[in-house]
């Protein structure tokens, strides 16, 4: 390339970088600033900077409850999601068949379907007259008044459904990277299946599994659509609270403060989780 063309090319790269940075940073700035301003009356924002919005949230037990519920629902859903995704991904990774590739592609395509559509399917499935509820009622001879819509359980089910394809895809990749001969070697050299899992497979899969779990957890913490549709307004999570502040109360500063606290909570929990090392993994270096 000619020197001048080279310079124009470099300038183009820098311009794109600056534009991206601005697109990311400028809204954040206004968003953070908003969270520090007083809400005078619905829609009217003052201009004195203070931490009052944060103080109001942090000192209100109601918000502690909302945060607690959000974290609990997210964590339980991650645990349930992993419990389903791990064996599934293991099976897919170890079958070693051509069909598996297509199954993964299908999974990927399905993840492009809007959450609204998927949740609609779940609503029909879990509704009072849906097959699941009817089956459970029949099995308990009508003694158990099963409700699977508009409660914590339905939200958790929705979150699992929301993150499951991603968990399976990530874990599939992680498990595929561990050659089956390692498990065979463990077993031939005298380990039980469980010991082979604990001493060989788990330490090797741990970093990838932790990453998958954190991604799913973060998705759950920010999940709005499935929570609002399956919770039916009865299950209050932080994203739903934010939406209410904005739409129902027109209280932008408070919504911004809530959003920032949610982000902060997620960041802190991620950093803490990255330090986690179960005993079996402790002696292990990433391969």
């Amino acid at each position: 390339m000619m020197p001048s063309a080279r310079r124009a090319y470099d300038a183009g790269l820098v311009a794109a970088f600056v534009a991206s940075a601005l697109l990311f940073l400028v809204p954040q700035f206004f968003f953070i600033r908003q969270s520090l301003l007083p809400n005078l009356s619905p829609g009217i924002v003052g201009d004195t900077i203070s931490l009052d919005n944060y103080r109001a949230i942090v000192t209100d037990p109601f918000y502690w409850g909302v945060f607690g519920r959000t974290i609990a629902l997210s964590a339980v859903s991650v645990a349930a999601g992993l419990a389903l995704a791990f064996p599934t991904a293991y099976l897919l990774a170890r079958i070693g068949s051509r069909v598996v590739r297509w199954l993964i592609v299908l999974l990927l395509i399905s993840s492009f379907v809007s959450v609204v559509v998927k949740v609609l399917g779940l609503t029909l499935l879990l509704g009072t007259d849906g097959p699941v509820v009817r089956a459970l009622r029949a099995l308990s001879f009508g003694l158990w008044d099963v409700r699977l819509l508009h409660n914590d359980a339905s939200v958790a089910i929705g979150l699992v459904q929301y993150t499951l394809p991603l968990l399976v895809m990530i874990l599939f990749g992680v498990i595929q990277n561990v050659p089956p001969s390692l498990e065979e070697a463990a077993v031939v050299h005298g380990a039980s299946d469980f010991r082979a899992f604990r001493r060989v497979l788990l330490p090797l899969l741990w970093p990838g599994t932790l990453a998958a779990a954190l991604i799913a957890f973060n998705m759950n913490m920010g999940a709005f659509t499935s929570a609002v549709l399956l919770g039916g307004g009865k299950v209050l999570t932080v994203p739903i609270m934010i939406q209410r502040k904005i739409i129902l109360e027109t209280d932008y500063p408070n919504a911004a403060a809530l959003a920032l606290l949610l982000t902060l909570a997620v960041v802190v929990m991620n950093l803490a989780a990255l330090k986690m090392r179960p005993a079996a993994v402790a002696a292990t270096r990433a391969g």
Partner: peptide, 28 residues
């Protein structure tokens, strides 16, 4: 397999990448 008391060397060695040599040897 684990009860047959057999030693086996695999085509790709199948050494446990998360353990140093000493622990690999001590595994069995």
């Amino acid at each position: 397999a684990r009860a047959r008391n057999i030693g086996m060397v695999f085509q790709d060695y199948a050494l446990f990448p998360n353990m140093p040599v000493r622990e690999n040897i001590a595994f069995g």
